[in-house]
Design a protein around this nucleic acid. Structure first.
Lengths: 199, 199
DNA sequence: TAAAACATAACGACCGGTCGGTTTATATGG
DNA sequence: CCATATAAACCGACCGGTCGTTATGTTTTA
């Protein structure tokens, strides 16, 4: 393995380990030594690739938030009509909750520190606003295609984002307490009923 | 001041200080010394009243969650019809967000640790399920009084709770980024439109 | 005077970050 | 093709400091 590959591999394994640790124990409670042990590298390697523990966290969330944005955008345009799209996306939530519980803890961790740490806040607020835009455009598309009444896209988009965030929050607190996918779908049904254009 | 009053006063000031510190910096980043300094007492006093830092946190959130439950119940039955009630409660959110930003940080802090610490989880999940019940009953009342269609109260209640949590989440991330009270009211309007019984 | 309430100082564990040294990969010169 | 130089990549012991907790002493109340 050449130098570049080795370096990238090391950095990736550190980020992977950090993801697990931060999700499981939180940023503060996770030690750099712990991350290094899990990654199978030394502290020297860690501080060769990252300026600080916080820097590693920032890089983590940046890539994760960007990946989430990609998924959102792909999903949003993957259905014929907007109501179908919303219901489809809601159904996928269940898979996410079930298979990737780790990311939900990370989501919480991110949110907590975003309200306290200025750097993390900045790194979070920008993608967050783009998520909001995606939902807004989705609502606008729903209006244009005749699925929805002429509601305010900003409000309805915010509503959708809040609802999603809220469900994530509940699900992370009590993953097995309910069938979150089904619940979210029923909620979307009610919502759609409120947005739907009457004939 | 007699012994009992003095003791209660000291404990209360510790809890007050702890509330501020935990909300501002989080549980992990807050030191016992910091709490004591803010409360104007010594570490000896702290560990005379609390078994550990975690115990103080648990006592904090227990009283806070219980207070929130009281507010919810009072508000829920303080309006003539359920739609009015929901809109009224949504309007009050703005005041809460504006005046009591500290509690929102604490809310986040609580949620984060609830998914990791078993004791905190138990202390959170019980009140949380009672909140859910309050919303469920509210929906049921809406159905009974003829305001709503015959939706599933459990789903609609969950929807309401998720929406509230989601808005709290957004508001804590970006308190001045939007007029949260107004946004939530508009969201409730859309929701009500979906729940409303058609004539 | 005895017990409760609080103060003070110290302990031991831990943690983020540093630093001098070592290994590994690659470029260079013969 | 080999020997060697060099810089990137990595190791791991160590430091300064902090933190939760405790042990012991002092004040206050009854």
């Amino acid at each position: 393995m050449n130098n570049l590959q080795r370096s990238a591999q090391t950095k990736a394994s550190i980020l992977d380990a950090a993801t697990v640790c931060f999700a499981r124990e939180g940023f503060d409670a996770t030690g750099v030594a712990e991350i290094c042990q899990r990654a199978g590298v030394s502290k020297g390697a860690f501080y060769y690739h990252f300026e600080s523990k916080e820097a590693a966290f920032l890089e983590l969330i940046a890539s994760w938030l960007s990946a989430l944005e990609q998924v959102l955008e792909d999903e949003a345009y993957n259905y014929k009509t907007v109501p179908e799209g919303l219901l489809g996306m809601a159904g996928n939530i269940q898979q996410i909750v079930a298979n990737n519980r780790m990311l939900m803890s990370l989501f919480l961790e991110l949110w907590t520190h975003a309200s306290r740490n200025e750097k993390i806040h900045q790194a979070t607020i920008a993608p967050y606003k783009r998520y909001l835009l995606i939902f807004e455009k989705l609502v606008q598309r729903g209006i244009d295609e005749g699925s929805f009444e002429t509601v305010d896209p900003a409000s309805a988009g915010q509503l959708l984002l809040s609802l999603s965030s809220g469900f994530f929050l509940q699900a992370s607190l009590d993953p097995d307490g309910a069938n979150w996918g089904k619940l979210l779908q029923e909620s979307i049904h009610i919502l759609l009923n409120g947005l739907k254009r009457r004939n």
